[in-house]
């Protein structure tokens, strides 16, 4: 029910209705981006990675945070073999 899938905004379909074309794993479909327009206009959203749910982009995906999460995993791996403190 609460499933969301990552996709990338490739173009604007109708800026007045906040409708954008989003590529989700190679499939393109129109998605409403009105929940993303708090800090910038629709025109500047092209190229953004977003989480799509029920026809709406719910949130932007933060590339730096994604990388940080994976880095934490790497660090965990590097710690292996060290004796417990």
């Amino acid at each position: 029910m609460c499933l969301g899938v990552p996709g990338q905004i490739v173009s604007l379909v109708n800026p007045e209705e906040a409708l954008a074309m989003v590529d989700v794993g190679g499939v393109r479909r129109p998605v409403n981006v009105s929940f993303l327009l708090e800090d910038r206009p629709a025109q500047e959203c092209v190229g953004d990675w977003v989480l799509v749910h029920a026809g709406f982009a719910l949130t932007r995906i933060d590339a730096e945070e994604a990388a940080r999460t994976l880095e934490l995993l790497e660090e965990l791996g590097e710690m292996r073999g060290e004796p417990d403190a």
Binding site: G4, F35, E38, L51, T59, R60, D62, E65
Partner: peptide, 18 residues
């Protein structure tokens, strides 16, 4: 917050307003 790539402390303002 393990899911920081999409979850922010204050959530989504416009969605909450709707």
């Amino acid at each position: 917050n393990q899911y920081a790539r999409v979850v922010r402390r204050d959530g989504n303002g416009p969605a909450l307003a709707a």
